[in-house]
Amino acid sequence: MPVMNETNRSLFELDLLRALVRVADCGSFTTAASRLHSTQSTVSQKIRRLEMLAGHRLLERGHRDVQPTDAGHILLGYARRMLGLNDELLQALAGATVATTLRLGVPEDFVNPRTTRMLAAFSRRHPRVRLEISSGLSRDLAHAFDHGELDLALVKQRRNSRPAVYCWPEPMHWIDSAHEPCVQQETLPLVTFPPRGLYRDEMIHAIEASGGRWRITFTSSSLSGIQGAVADGIGISLLPRRAVLAGHQVIDGQRGLPVIDSYEIGILYRDNADDGVRALALELKRQVDDEAR
């Protein structure tokens, strides 16, 4: 049986892995370099070195942001775990009491003062659990969960698209500006999330099914960007009930816009989840229960 020489093994240095994680989280080499107190060229060199070691392209550089490739997503999952273990080792040697890291993903519209207070209280009650919280689009959170980058995820999804430990219907509303409405324009202006984002295709299909015409006037991956654009009169949108603000008006039924009831909220964790994950999932469940009433 051949024996692999120690010098022939690819060693994934933590410094290279940290650069990959930071670029993926920031979506930008420039921002990542700033966070790492380094230069963009140095960070780029580290990513190239890591790609050589991995034998795969790890990042796709687009016009506006940087996205992990399939191989990048796989490596990211391991990189986060390796960096987490390194931090735990340092804390253990320093006499710290942190025993486990719990990686949680939540959609942006659930990140509010009530949620952050709940998470802070959970941390105080569970001092041996260190929370790592990510916020983003549900499709990205579900992808991260599937690739082992999250232990627990709260996601919005189409009904019955995947099993969830806990599940609730997600009431939706068509909304327009309360002060500068657009719904009577001949061609409906739409404010949407990016392609493949939730609600975008649903909006387009519903308008076309009613015989209407549409055009996209504003695209943003940020919920606050969508909310602000609608309130200011740039276009109409489709959002969950919880995301409707005082500057909006509900326009369900106008111009043939139908009721949309095809979405749900789900909490995901694995069958082998530890007690910390299950305890935090129950906290999230109580909060969603309260908001759903």
Rank of each mutant, 00 (worst) to 15 (best):
E13W: 10
E13R: 15
L17Y: 11
A19L: 01
V21C: 09
R22L: 03
G27P: 14
G27I: 09
S28W: 08
S28N: 09
T30V: 13
T30G: 02
T31K: 11
A33N: 10
A33W: 12
R35C: 13
S38G: 06
Q40Y: 04
V43S: 05
M52L: 03
L53N: 05
A54T: 08
G55K: 12
H56A: 11
R57N: 06
L58Q: 07
L59R: 04
H63A: 15
D65Y: 02
G72L: 02
G72N: 02
H73I: 09
I74Q: 06
I74N: 01
L75T: 02
L76C: 12
L76N: 08
R80D: 01
R81N: 14
R81K: 14
G84Y: 03
D87E: 14
E88Y: 03
L89G: 07
L89H: 05
A92H: 12
G95H: 07
T97L: 09
V98K: 13
L104N: 02
E108I: 08
V111D: 09
V111E: 08
N112V: 06
R114T: 14
M118S: 13
M118R: 12
A120C: 04
F122R: 08
R124L: 10
R128W: 13
V129Y: 01
E132D: 15
S134P: 00
S135G: 12
R139C: 09
D140M: 11
A142V: 08
H143C: 07
H143Q: 10
F145Q: 00
F145K: 01
H147A: 01
H147Y: 15
L152N: 00
A153K: 06
L154W: 10
V155H: 06
S161L: 04
R162M: 06
P163G: 04
A164W: 14
A164S: 15
M172L: 14
M172H: 04
M172T: 05
H173D: 05
H179A: 10
H179G: 03
C182M: 12
C182G: 10
Q184N: 12
T187H: 03
L188E: 04
L190T: 12
L190N: 11
V191G: 03
F193R: 11
E202G: 01
H205T: 12
G211L: 11
G211E: 13
G212L: 06
R213H: 09
I216Q: 13
I216E: 15
T217Q: 07
T217C: 13
F218C: 07
S221F: 14
L223S: 08
L223C: 03
Q227G: 00
D232I: 00
D232G: 06
G235S: 07
I236W: 14
I236P: 08
A243L: 01
V244Y: 00
A246N: 02
G247T: 07
I251Y: 14
I251Q: 10
D261P: 02
E264L: 01
G266K: 03
I267Q: 06
D274A: 00
A279R: 06
L280S: 09
L282M: 11
L284Y: 05
Q287N: 13
V288I: 15
